[in-house]
């Protein structure tokens, strides 16, 4: 008796889950199908294109005023640099905060923690003034630098490094390793889960970031994808099929990262969230 009831319940759960999942996927389905339509078919009730217009994807790259390829490249370049710098500097700082003992350490760390809850909006305006005086407005360097140093990343990696047993440090010290060697050969490899999590979050966060590029960048050849898409939408957004093709392509890197890194990502959120 119990068996069949349980089976029925499971089936029901499956059906509900599948329906909700469908609701999650439907917008994306429309997006892909619309990107394959002809422009005249966009407003029709049927979602399915009569002829699949694969050349829409090619046309996005050759449109005048839309330098899609360059935007793609810029986005990945900027997100790559920010991620690298953030992971590197944060792991160094976290190493200092967790594995080294020095006077005043905890005070400095508290200062870091305190700034974590500041709304980033407060910093935006003076940072923009900063960039004007440094002459970095409208450059990619100006996009990379302010986001390259984060308190959150330091915090995340430090929490993880605190849990690495300290016997390792002692062993390394006996071997005569310097602090740098300790960091580079022992601690950094062990902190891998935290670093991978930080990498994914930083990369995605930056790939999607819109506020700072919007403020900083003026030349179309320096746009990143989010603001490029914004410009595309406002200047030639009535070409819905091409716009949707562009949207689809801009989501693809995220899909790839998501599918390949999902397990680590889920682990990372639980690591960062529950303890934080």
């Amino acid at each position: 008796m119990k068996f069949s009831f349980d089976g029925f319940r499971l089936l029901l759960v499956h059906v509900v889950l599948a329906l909700v999942a469908t609701a999650m996927v439907l917008p994306f389905t429309w997006m892909v199908l619309a990107s394959l339509k002809k422009l005249q078919e966009i407003g029709l009730e049927s979602w399915i294109p009569t002829v699949f217009q694969w050349e829409n994807y090619r046309d996005v790259f050759t449109m005048k005023g839309v330098q899609f390829g360059r935007w793609y490249w810029n986005s990945i370049l900027v997100a790559g640099w920010v991620t690298f710098l953030q992971v590197f500097t944060s792991s160094l700082a976290a190493f200092s905060f967790s594995r080294l003992k020095w006077k005043g350490r905890d005070m400095v760390f508290l200062l870091y923690l305190a700034t974590m809850m500041l709304p980033s909006l407060v910093m935006m305006i003076p940072n923009y003034q900063n960039m004007i005086s440094l002459g970095l407005v409208n450059t990619l360097q100006g996009l990379i630098l302010p986001s390259a140093f984060s308190a959150f990343g330091t915090f995340l990696i430090r929490q993880f490094m605190m849990n690495i047993p300290s016997s390792l440090d002692e062993a390394a010290e006996i071997d005569g390793a310097s602090k740098w060697q300790l960091y580079w050969t022992v601690i950094l490899p062990l902190a891998r889960p935290a670093i991978v999590t930080l990498t994914i979050f930083t990369f995605i966060g930056n790939y999607n970031s819109m506020f700072w590029p919007l403020v900083m960048i003026k030349s179309p050849e320096l746009y990143t994808l989010p603001i490029g898409m914004l410009a595309f939408d406002s200047s030639q957004g009535q070409q819905t099929n091409l716009l949707m093709a562009a949207v689809t392509m801009s989501v693809i890197p995220m899909i790839l990262i998501f599918l390949f890194m999902q397990k680590q990502l889920v682990k990372g959120i639980m690591l960062g969230g529950v303890k934080g």
């Binding site: 917008p27 994808l225 716009l243 949207v247 801009s250 995220m254 899909i255 998501f258």
Partner: peptide
């Protein structure tokens, strides 16, 4: 995960 300008334009 994908929430950003792209999905906002989609919506």
């Amino acid at each position: 995960f994908t929430a950003g300008v792209a999905t906002y334009i989609l919506w």
